[in-house]
Design a binder for these strands. Structure first.
Length: 473
RNA sequence: GGCGACGUAGCCAAGUGGUAAGGCAGGGGUCUGCAAAACCCCUAUACCCCGGUUCGAAUCCGGGCGUCGCCUCCA
């Protein structure tokens, strides 16, 4: 049984897919008007883990994540740099895709864009006008918020209290301050599409209602996004969809916590975002990916480079063990010791942690427990069994969490490293420890870790997934 | 001002009624040419403060203090 926190009800609810065995998901993607930052990566990685876990549990998952590739910010930015809005958006969408790929995020099944769904949006707005949930004013179309008696339920606020003391000017023609634009009329020099209400572009919220309907149907299981989208975006989206469909569009609303810096939210408009390209130059992608998974997805995550470095040290323990077990054969038996029990029961406990509202922090705790048990087994004379069980466990965990690097190192580098290790062991046998230490220093500086043990010298490249090797010491 | 969330060891962080996961850092020991890794042991009578409910609360309720988020740019 998988349980998920639902923002609408404010409680943990069991996941009951509308179609048994299938889970449909829609999440709000980015507005591509600037570089991708860490805050964009968090929900992407979180949903990647959710998808992988659901698949592991046997569900067929359909995942849709949109791009809002036309809006005021894009138009403004495009005007500033003298580039067409479509080119600006395309550039940043490409960058986003590349960053997500580096983070090991599976591509969505559909990645619809607003500009490719204008027809669906226009007909959606038309239906809302016909049913009286929307009205035209000065070339704009507004959604009549008070037509939905449940408006405010999702974000847990009361409509009457919401607009008191609001100091923004109400746009001319709006019946009510809380009403929001479904269609915005365009200035002559702005990019626009023809519509029954004149040339213009869609408002911010309507695209998600129209595109989720087109790609997932009239109702779907999970809707995701950052908690900062709860209001107004998701509140508005829900109101539109309820008005259009006559029923609830979403089974469970799932919101991920924000990343903060100095306790303040990281966001493009505050200019305190850490760009992903910058982070990629300083940390391996699996470290960044799993750093985002090191706390529960609903908790705020304070960005601190020292924490990432700490996390990298923790991961290196797992990686070192993986280097030791990755070629192990399947185990034949397991002794009744405590460490063996941990290794054999790992899958059950690991998946149970994720069943519980996708608790990745707890899932990692189970991985570290398992790592300790594996090392105990190896140290206590059951290396074959321990390695075999551990290989299976790490592959399972990695398939969902994605903490192991998978970049291969050129063969020639490996061959050179192997010869250096060989010469070092010759020096050690000759008790020429000065030369041996020099050779080890060269290997270390090249990214190779050298470990002398009773079974010989193990060596591998940390953080890059080199094949490494073993030589008799 | 309104609404909401959070406050757990030196640091990060799970746990939400039954007696404190995990990570980092630190200390002691074993092993080792040295180192690293690994193994063994130690490091919160305790979960912001004060009341209350309960046989029992970090977990529920009330009050207080602090931090953050949303209140139409936002993942």
């Amino acid at each position: 049984m998988i349980e998920v926190y639902d923002s609408l009800s404010g409680t943990i609810v069991p996941l009951k897919p509308r179609i048994p065995g299938r889970v449909s998901i829609y999440t709000c993607g980015v507005t591509p008007y600037d570089h991708s930052h860490l805050g964009h990566a968090r929900p992407a990685v979180v949903w990647d883990v959710i998808r992988r876990h659901l698949r592991r549990r046997g569900y067929i998952v359909t995942y849709v994540q949109n791009f809002t590739d036309i809006d005021d910010k894009i138009i403004k930015r495009a005007g500033e740099i003298g580039q067409p809005a479509s080119e600006l958006a395309a550039r940043y969408m490409t960058e986003y895709h590349a960053a997500m790929e580096q983070l090991g995020v599976l591509a969505p099944d559909f990645a619809p864009r607003v500009t490719e769904n204008i027809d669906a949006i226009i007909s959606y707005i038309g239906a809302l006008l016909e049913s009286g949930h929307a009205y035209v004013a000065e070339g704009n179309v507004y959604f009549r918020v008070r037509s939905d008696p449940q408006y405010g339920q999702l974000s847990h606020r009361k409509l009457d209290e919401m607009w008191e003391g609001v100091r923004i000017e109400v746009e001319p023609g709006k019946e009510y301050a809380g009403d929001f634009a479904l269609w915005k009329s365009a200035d002559a020099d702005e990019v626009s599409w023809p519509s029954p209400w004149g040339a213009g572009r869609p408002g911010w919220h309507i695209e998600c209602s129209a595109m989720s309907l087109r790609y997932l149907g009239a109702a779907f299981d999970l809707h995701g996004g950052g908690i900062d989208l709860l209001f107004p975006h998701h509140e508005n989206e829900r109101a539109q969809s309820r008005a259009y469909l006559g029923h609830e569009p979403v089974s469970i609303w799932v919101h991920s916590g924000l990343i903060t810096r100095g306790s303040v939210k990281m966001s493009k408009s505050l200019g305190n975002g850490i760009s992903l390209s910058d982070l990629f130059s300083r940390f391996p992608a699996p470290v960044l990916r799993t750093y985002l998974l090191s706390v529960h997805y609903r908790s705020p995550l304070e960005f601190e480079e020292d924490r990432i470095a700490e996390w990298a040290r923790a991961l290196s323990r797992i990686e070192r063990l993986w280097e030791d077990v990755k070629t192990a054969l399947p185990p034949r038996d397991a002794p009744g010791d405590e460490w063996a029990r941990v290794l054999t029961e790992f899958e059950e406990h690991f998946l149970a942690a994720l069943d519980s509202d996708f608790n990745t922090a707890q899932a990692f705790a189970r991985v570290f427990d398992m790592v300790a048990a594996a090392n105990q087994g190896i140290a206590r004379g059951h290396a074959l069994t321990a390695r075999g069980l551990t290989r299976r466990n790490l592959r399972l965990a990695n398939e969902i969490l994605g903490f192991l690097p998978d970049v291969t190192v050129p063969v020639e580098d490996e061959a050179l490293a192997a010869s250096l290790v060989k010469r070092r062991n010759e020096a050690r046998q000759a008790r020429d420890f000065v030369l041996a230490d020099q050779l080890r220093a060269i290997l270390t500086e090249s990214g190779y870790e050298v470990l002398d043990g009773p079974e010989g010298t193990r060596w591998h490249r940390l953080g890059h997934g080199g094949r490494g090797g073993m030589q008799d010491g």
